[in-house]
Amino acid sequence: MQFKKTSSPYLHNNQNISLVMLQVIYALIPGILVYSYFFGWSILVNIILACLTAVASEALMLLLRKRPLAFFLRDNSAILTACLLALALPTLAPWWLIVIATLFAIVVAKHLYGGLGYNPFNPAMVGYVVVMISFPQYMTQWLQPHAGLDLSQALQYLFLGELNAAISLDSITSATPIDSIKTGLSLNQSISEISASPLFGFWGGAGWEWIAAAFLLGGLWLIYRGIISWQIPVSLLLSIVVMAGIFYLADPQQYSNPLFQLFSGGTILAAFFIATDPVSASTTPKGRIIYAVGIGALTFIIRTWGGYPDGIAFAVLLMNMAVPTIDYYTQPRVFGASGK
């Protein structure tokens, strides 16, 4: 009898990229639901628009690059990028802002670098930074909690850029809590004065703290499932807590407390979902810790002293750049190598 020949091992745990990406998307769902509870339909509409753009541009790039279309579209990676990007962008955003950011993420940051697995930079963060630098005025329009728009209003704003005459944009939007601290401090207000504003909740931004908690839940589930390793989220969050803690203890009226730093902005989302993107992150156990501590430290620095409202995107991209060097110098000790 003759048989087909292949190489061992012949067993596999049946894990695949498509399933991995899908589980990360599932883990985002609680956060997305809480988000839309506080801020209405806009976020859902944004996510759908970003996903459609991502899948279309992914398909186009695969065709141009003569790659098997169905095979790669099934991997769900473009959809995950789109979800993360939509969650990072402001809730009230014009359609073209979302489309440009997504196109940049998929076309430039992903496919022009070689597609899945070859991008040195986190695609979602590249897309975010491009629109952040190009259209800064649109990046500050954040809805106030429970000022949410219904579906028709959300669609109207998204595509026409206008609202009913009854609602003025100023009445429903505001700066983010992190941004307002920065502005307040520059006006010589103290932290306790600034945090008296209704923008602030129990320990983070009003509404945002609960969204962050929901993302935390999803993130912990991912660690439990073994989809992400603990090193990146834990060290990223710890480094922010330590840095914020030192400055908070030194001067509580000039620096916000560590808990606020954790539960506002995109800290939790970034720690569990963005910095953990395996392609652009460090892969060695020690390297992951260095990489994540770097992101945490840079985030705190940019937030506190930088010119942008939130520094996570820049921190992630900067550390992406350092990954090859980190990986090179943090190779684990090989079994039986001297110097245990």
Binding site: T6, S7, P9, Y10, L11, H12, N16, I17, V20, F71, D75, G115, L116, G117, Y118, S229, P278, V279, A281, T283, T284
Partner: peptide, 13 residues
């Protein structure tokens, strides 16, 4: 196991 077409490495570790 070996029947599947391989995807690119995503450096998951």
């Amino acid at each position: 196991a070996q029947e599947q077409q391989a995807m690119p490495c995503i450096r998951c570790g």
